[in-house]
């Protein structure tokens, strides 16, 4: 990457590797190494909402922990706002902030306002700014009316919104959000996405990890798809989806697993990809293909009597793109 292009990025990750080493056995002599991040490289521009997509265990949280000075990389280089998170953590920490998904990272036995007050003190925010900023943040995350209630009485969504407020007490330039909408109901998740969009409008750079594809599609300017710690694709959601342009998905819902059907589907050469899923209600089979009309005549004879609950066709989404990349990447 040339010098000019490099300067526009405020997050630079190059060939990042992180191994976790554990010791097993009675005398803990057996060393076991797991590579969580494997030669990962990406760059994020100022003011961008950048998404890291990947399944559980893809290395997203580990990457965020390295970027936020919490974890040391095994090798590779990381630069945040021109600073090395490992050796220049002291200079970097006041300028960034993070939220890890779920209800943790808050003190439950004190109020929401007291939580914000405490973290403001840890970030050396003056009383004058604190008095102005804390009510603003509570208003931003819709907790103004619950500010003086103990956090333990909050719902999951309220706790997650309080976490967002907590991460803004220092007015950070970069915000790292690790699965911030995990476990939220649809309205709670939508509210949180709106807050993230608002922050980006205010000029904050946001790096968000998620495994909800529609979420990334809605809010991210660019997304990186990570599988087993490796980068498998990086582009705008629109460009990634364009790769599956003119691709359709046929979704079959069956009342029981049909191995003969799956075997038969593998023989249809017009089908690009087959994905079978089990849910509590039904067995789902998704078929990616260019031309559903050519697939249908070959498909129906394969379905056993009484097995099919429903069938529908739709356009490919970012989720299909994600599955396409993840299933293609070597294990």
């Amino acid at each position: 990457m040339d010098q000019e292009k490099q300067s526009e990025y405020i997050i630079e990750v190059q060939n990042l590797v992180r191994d976790y080493v554990s010791h097993k056995g009675v005398f803990r002599k057996k060393k076991h190494t797991v590579r969580a991040v494997n030669n990962l490289s990406f760059f994020v521009k100022k003011g961008e909402i950048f998404g890291l997509l990947g399944a559980n265990g893809a290395g997203k949280t580990t990457t965020i922990k390295i970027l936020t000075t919490l974890l040391a990389p095994t090798s590779g280089s990381v630069s945040i706002l021109g600073l090395d998170p490992m050796t220049q953590a002291k200079a970097l920490r006041p300028r960034i902030s993070f939220v890890f998904g779920g209800e943790r990272s808050l003190y439950w036995r004190i109020t929401g306002r007291e939580n914000l007050n405490y973290f403001s003190d840890l970030y050396h925010i003056s009383n004058e700014i604190k008095k102005r900023r804390i009510p603003e943040l509570l208003e931003l995350v819709g907790l103004k009316d619950h500010a003086d209630e103990r956090v333990e009485t909050y719902s999951k969504g309220m706790k997650q919104r309080l976490q967002i407020a907590r991460c803004l007490v220092n007015d950070p330039e970069i915000i790292f959000l690790d699965e911030p909408t995990i476990g939220l109901d649809p309205i709670g998740a939508r509210d949180l996405r709106n807050i993230v969009k608002m922050l980006a409008k205010q000029g904050k750079t946001v790096l968000i990890t998620t495994h909800y594809m529609y979420e990334a599609d809605e809010i991210c300017g660019r997304v990186a798809i990570v599988n087993k710690g490796k980068l498998v694709a990086l582009d705008t959601p629109a460009n990634l989806k364009a790769q599956t342009e003119h691709t359709s998905v046929i979704e079959l819902h069956l009342n029981e697993k049909d191995d003969a059907l799956l075997k038969g589907l593998n023989q249809i050469k017009e089908i690009d990809q087959i994905r079978a899923n089990h849910t509590d209600q039904y067995e789902s089979v998704s078929l990616q293909c260019k031309e559903p009309r050519t697939v249908f005549p070959q498909l129906f004879p394969l379905i056993g009597t009484g097995h099919l609950l429903s069938v529908r066709t739709r356009e490919a989404t970012l989720e299909d793109v994600y599955i396409h990349y993840v299933s293609q990447s070597p294990h």
Binding site: T68, L106, Y107, Y123
Partner: peptide, 18 residues
């Protein structure tokens, strides 16, 4: 286990003072 150790640790305040 509450997840707050990471939050206070990466704040600009010296962890020993906290």
């Amino acid at each position: 286990y509450m997840g707050t150790l990471e939050c206070i640790y990466v704040s600009p305040s010296d962890f020993r003072l906290i």
